[in-house]
Write a protein that binds this DNA or RNA. Structure first.
Lengths: 242, 242
DNA sequence: CATCCTTTCTGGACTAGGTCAGTTTTGATG
DNA sequence: CATCAAAACTGACCTAGTCCAGAAAGGATG
């Protein structure tokens, strides 16, 4: 510990680990802290940002800095849906539908969905929370033709469950990409992040039992709110026996 | 585009996309850019950091800012090793051994490796580059008893290949966690990052054909250098047929 | 008791500098 | 032509503020 920055980070870390801020989970304001540590707001802010990157604290725009709850464990390979996954970890889940649109697929989406003709798609944007903290912005793009009347159902539940119940579709195979990047404007606003802040982007494409692309999904996670957990089963193992 | 920050980000983005800095891949210095944009170094630096978070540029400590090459696609489930994976993507890979130690397992490592007694482990720290750019710090911890004389081999190659060739062990199953976090001091130094900068941490545990834990691995990736790409095969599919 | 308005508090955005520690370049010297 | 030291350059780290917009709390009013 040589620089001021390191010292401040170290002290704050220790205080957070010690549970000093557990009552409200809220840290003192930047101004207060900078006076406490006898430094400028800029230096102090850098320390906070470093702890944010580490996943120990998070901020809400113009509301303050808070201690991060434990990370949610997320297995994108499991077919368990969001609400069940969260509840299995003794946490409370909620979903809020933001916008629902039906429009012609953009060239990018057409490519991902392997569309050969210009087709309308449903675009569903939702916001998901764990213990009342918004952690995930998710957009689903699905081929309208495959899902007639989809928009008349309750979209705050699991879409995967809807696919199965009303259309007989199951996700047989999926591929996904995980990309550390910055939050686009709309996502930042919805997740209560400052623009340009770090998020974990997950793009997935789901295939049904017939091997046909059903939908694609863009997930944007608050990076401190989760960790990905994957258990592989190699072709050399006995995974295929009943 | 309202704030200065956004304007600067927009212009820089366009210039990077336009390939203006392709000759050297190096951006002008912070001081130069701040004069060009008629702003202070702090504001300009914030713009650079936002682009860094997005994965468009990266910095090397006290060397400057550079345009990021395309992301490496990385599938942690594939049993392909680093060098092969990189070469399959028409890039050039290299590995440098940093330190090799044999010591008693810490309590954390003991837990991960499911050790019941106090045992010595080998700790191998390596640095991996793509096209001469350091992108990955990786530490392998393996049970010494399982791998006699391991340290006498060339450790700059694939360890998985070594396990197979000299010990007959194959990775039958593995589990891994992906965690967005900040670079610890040692890692930051090795990867040429400022301390506290963002990295993608991947912890994996490998099991051999007998279902015994072989080793665990801690990977720290420069976040702009890669994306994770996973293709799932669900139990409902026909994946097990030859 | 609800509603609206004002005040206070918060982080976001910005200015205008400075010092310090590594990196790179350059130029003198053998 | 190689070597080494000095100079120039780079981002890291730091000070000391200002102004702004959105969030929250308090109080007055119906």
């Amino acid at each position: 510990m040589k620089t001021q920055l390191r010292t401040i980070k170290g002290i704050l870390k220790e205080q957070i680990a010690g549970g000093i801020y557990t009552s409200q989970r809220k840290l003192p304001s930047e101004r207060e802290l900078s006076e406490l540590f006898k430094t400028t707001r800029i230096t102090l802010k850098e320390a906070l940002i470093a702890l944010e990157t580490e996943g120990l604290i998070y901020r809400e725009e113009r509301r303050g800095w808070f201690v991060s709850p434990p990370r949610l464990r997320y297995n994108p390979l499991s077919r368990s849906h969001f609400h069940r996954m969260v509840e299995e970890q003794q946490r409370q889940a909620s979903t809020q539908v933001l916008t629902v649109k039906t429009e012609l697929a953009s060239s990018e989406i057409s490519k991902v969905l392997q569309l050969k003709t210009l087709q309308p798609i449903h675009r569903i944007q939702r916001l998901r929370s764990v213990d009342n903290r918004v952690v995930l912005f998710v957009e689903n793009c699905l081929i309208s033709a495959l899902f007639p009347d989809l928009l008349h159902h309750d979209l705050s539940q699991s879409l995967t469950a809807l696919y199965k119940k009303h259309y007989g579709f199951e996700t047989a195979r999926s591929r996904f990409d995980v990309i550390p990047t910055a939050a686009p404007e709309q996502v930042a606003k919805a997740l209560n992040l400052a623009e340009g802040q770090q998020v974990l982007k997950i793009c997935r494409v789901n295939y049904n039992q017939q091997g046909v692309v059903m939908d694609c999904e863009y997930e944007y996670w608050r990076p401190d709110a989760m960790m990905i957990e994957i258990e592989s089963i190699s072709p050399h193992s006995n995974a295929c026996e009943p």
